[in-house]
Design a protein around this nucleic acid. Structure first.
Lengths: 340, 340
DNA sequence: AATATTGTCTTAAACGATTTCGATCTTCTG
DNA sequence: CAGAAGATCGAAATCGTTTAAGACAATATT
């Protein structure tokens, strides 16, 4: 235990606690001489401030909560989320904030209550389950500083990747390689992200004068390779199966490729495949996956910047919708089809 | 701001703050009637305790610090570490503790100071850089509750995977497939983990009456695929190159495979390869990687259990060295060699 | 020279909880 | 019925810090 408090320093220096506090905090009503004396003895005595006391008085914790997990309890282990978190953490720490996780088990206390109880200065929500009533409460019913990632919310600043441009770019690329029987397994749920990608998908098709049967658009689960395998099976058993299948993320693309190869269908010779995310491992596959890379680190970084700005300058900050650009990774899982 | 404190409840109920506090904390010198009254009004008034005040008085934060990052600023994004963290987080939250990261940038305050300043109850250290003076200070110079992962430290309980058994099993498997020209790229540094694996490697060779030239044992960087490629190159340019290369982890194995294939060497037909870790993506490769799976989630989980036990029962807890078992994943990157 | 200003430091209250010790009242014991 | 024991509650100190307001002396102003 450090055990040495302002009082001890005050005693050692023969002055009042207030003076010591102000000296250490660099207030200007302290003479340079005593300020130096105080600082020196504080160092000598291995003084450490007590954040709890400081927090109690100032109502600032310099700590930000992260709401990350999905219901399954994973989340951290998904490369995309961990990259977002990484970017967020680095930036927040750079700006002088600690980060902590919001509890999601033993829910006696909701997320909002957890934030208030712990005196957090703000929170970032990066979670697929934005329908959770607790998450909604956190986002809507209060003025607690929050930013969201991958979710557009009309009460909070949000950071998202360029889903429209991304999906449009990726789809256009597939078209330009000569495909016209293109299937898209889009992620589940009512999320705006999903809707935008689907819209961009159709837009790109229209621009290339391509129309696809309704059966080519199927709903699958994000990041769930087995579900992706099942969707792939259904698609390939259609009377006229697609020549290219686009998946909602790299993980599901892997699942699809695994299934295809298990039934003797070659990728990309027989069927082409695209992913989404630009995960590190997608490029270690043979052949490397055609995918759209999301700049997850930067998304986390921007989220931290925006959140902290809104915490420190609440008056001059306003709701923003920030889009972070990604990039097409051509890879090699989309083969060129000669148009005949 | 919640804004309602014990004082407000006391006023509303017409009793003292002390009684309210004790009623809410379930002390036994409060009559059931008033306890119910207090609880009810507390709920009515949306009362939330203030953790800072509570912390200041009780000197308990119910928060654990995680020291994870390596110098490069990554760590979170490595599947192995994120799995450890995941296991730790889930278990700690189940036991009623929050977790937060220990700051590693802007180091005005060391890790230990950071823990004391923030009133953390304990810390877990999962970091390759155990030579960092700050880390050493945290582990050695104090009685602050800590556990380490993947690092044996004679002052702290440590959790490690069964490196000896793991490397022994993996090497034995390679031998049993008929290989005798086996190279091993071991991770860098003086870490005990590395030493144990090297020892187990040699032990397994001896048991199979195999001796290898010294050039077959090279030092490479953990998790660094480019460095692995360079090491692989050197190995393959030896007069008598190995028939199997064992890498320190899956990531480096990928790097090695990439290099080999880029120069037209087939895996496993020409050269066999093994990894270490059992990452999810190692099984998505074609062919799936031969590797030794480490039960990272369980390591994190056990670390949390041990740490919290030592926090809550300091008297009856003692230093332990806990080993978590993994398992051989045979995969398909080691080919059988007919012995002639 | 009287007053106003400035610079430096202290007093004291406050943040919101916990906890020791004692006070009061009721009930039990012999 | 006197005293002991038990049940229930409150007063007050305390944790370590910040900060508004005031005190005091030295200096500047007129």
């Amino acid at each position: 235990m450090s055990g040495v408090s302002l009082k001890d320093i005050a005693k050692a220096c023969g002055m009042s606690v207030a003076t010591v506090s102000k000296a250490l905090n660099g207030r200007d009503d302290i003479s340079p001489a005593t300020r130096e004396l105080v600082r020196h003895t504080a160092q000598q005595m291995d003084y450490l401030p007590n954040s709890a006391a400081r927090m109690l008085k100032t109502r600032r914790s310099y700590t930000i909560g992260v709401l990350l997990e999905d219901a399954a309890g994973s989340g951290l282990t998904h490369e995309y989320f961990s990259r977002v978190l990484q970017g967020f953490k680095n930036e927040a720490e750079m700006l002088g904030y600690d980060i902590t996780f919001l509890r999601n088990v033993n829910r006696k206390m909701g997320f909002l209550e957890n934030c208030l109880y712990r005196g957090l200065d703000g929170a970032v929500v990066v979670n697929k389950d934005f329908d959770d009533p607790e998450v909604r409460k956190l986002l809507n019913e209060t003025s607690f500083p929050c930013v969201t990632i991958d979710y557009v919310c009309n009460t909070r600043t949000s950071i998202e990747s360029d889903n429209v441009k991304g999906m449009h770019t990726l789809t256009s690329y597939v078209c330009s390689e000569g495909h016209s029987r293109i299937a898209y397994i889009h992620g589940e749920g009512e999320a705006e992200v999903t809707k935008r990608r689907v819209a961009a998908f159709y837009t790109a098709l229209e621009e290339n004068d391509i129309s696809i049967p309704d059966e080519y658009l199927v709903e699958g689960k994000y990041l769930h390779s087995k579900d992706a395998a099942a969707c792939t099976k259904r698609l390939m058993e259609l009377p006229k199966p697609p020549t290219c299948i686009m998946y909602p993320d790299d993980m599901t693309a892997f699942g699809g490729i695994e299934y295809l190869r298990s039934v003797g269908i070659r990728v990309p010779e027989d069927v082409s495949v695209t992913g989404y995310d630009g995960s590190e491992f997608s490029q270690r596959l043979l052949p490397p996956l055609t995918t759209y890379w999301q700049n997850a680190e930067k998304m986390g970084q921007e989220a931290a910047k925006e959140l902290i700005t809104s915490i420190e300058h609440p008056k001059t900050s306003y709701l923003k919708r920030i889009t972070i650009e990604g990039a097409l990774w051509k890879g090699d899982t989309v083969r060129k089809i000669e148009t005949n």
